[in-house]
Computed example of a mutant assay.
Amino acid sequence: MAHPKLQLAAALVGSGLAGVLVALQSRINGGLSQQLGNGFVAAAISFGGGLVVMLLVLLVSRRGRQGIGLVRREIAAGRLPRWALLGGAGGAFLVLNQGLITPLIGVALFTVGIVAGQVSGGLVLDRLGLGPGGRIRATPTRLVGAALAIVAVVVTVAGALDSSLALLVLVPVIVGAGVAAQSMVNGLVRAAAQSAVTATLTNFIVGTALLVLAAVVSLLFTGWPTHWPSELWLYSGGLIGVVFIAVAAMLVRRAGVLLLSMSNVAGQLVAAIAFEIGFPLAGGLTPALVAGTLIALVAVVIAAVPSKPVAGRE
């Protein structure tokens, strides 16, 4: 068996690569939303595509099918709370705002906001012990890392104070906290089901139901989109979401909610900068965006450095 430190390092690297996929998904869903002129429909298509992929995976995954029965038994026995099945709400909120907010503020600014929400939410969730790894005590480096993530958002937004869109960065901050919670509850479901397939499928069932409902309400007011893009890659957001959610569900027990979130956003930030350079959705790179991204990356590194827990904490 691999050394625990090597296992943790592998988990963080895997989470970082998954973060690249989140930034890619933001770019894809934001582009689809722009083309359709309806972020609600774009989000429903993305999550619905992921659900189709997971149903196909379930057909060939015996462990995934067995996991459904295990989850039912765990819930009936009271060992798994019913609210643990609602992780898809966090994913749905992320995908929806990728389509609604990313085209307005760009991938990089959206991602920096996600950073603050993920690391702050992860710190709180680890401290409360709600994740599958139990209570993970706060350390000075984690607290400093979380504080720097907030500073990164302030620096980034300060560069956009002349824009009426600056306050929109608060939306991805809230979304980021939801993503941290999503990883936590998906980890709980995976532990109960003994299958990442079951956990991921549960996520997509809940998320798709919520987003389809929102899309239907939106269509009642705006009507059916008149233009559907022909680029097939714009419809791949759901497949990318499948990979991200499955990886997070598998790794959260090893890394904890905070470190998983931190390594994940490191990958998001690097990819977001690349997209703003090569395929911008909004105004592209600015000095404030670069500074905020660098501070957020430093926050990730500092939070990942081991240190003794804060005195007086469990």
Rank of each mutant, 00 (worst) to 15 (best):
I302K: 00
F47C: 11
L12C: 03
N29H: 01
G283W: 03
A311T: 13
L161E: 15
F244C: 08
V298K: 04
L188R: 11
L297P: 02
W228V: 13
L8S: 08
Q194L: 11
L104V: 08
I277Y: 12
L220I: 14
L201R: 10
L143Y: 06
Q7S: 15
G176V: 09
A108V: 05
Q35E: 15
A138N: 05
A248W: 01
R253I: 08
G207I: 01
V20P: 08
R127Y: 14
S61R: 01
S46W: 02
V252D: 04
T198A: 14
K308G: 13
A149R: 06
V124Y: 03
F40C: 05
A42N: 04
F110D: 03
A18C: 12
V300Y: 10
G267V: 06
I150M: 14
A214E: 05
G91V: 08
W83H: 14
T139I: 02
R62F: 03
E314C: 10
L55H: 13
V144F: 07
L58K: 05
L94Q: 01
A291C: 11
A272T: 05
G67A: 08
E314M: 12
A138S: 07
T226G: 06
W83D: 13
G106E: 01
A181H: 10
P309I: 04
I277G: 06
V153N: 09
I273V: 15
G37D: 14
L167C: 06
G223V: 03
V257P: 00
S15I: 00
A42K: 02
L220Q: 15
R72K: 14
I277Q: 10
S33W: 01
I45C: 04
G292Y: 15
I75N: 00
P4T: 01
A11N: 12
D126K: 00
A149S: 14
L17S: 07
L211K: 02
W83R: 14
V185F: 12
K308E: 15
E74W: 11
G256S: 00
G49T: 05
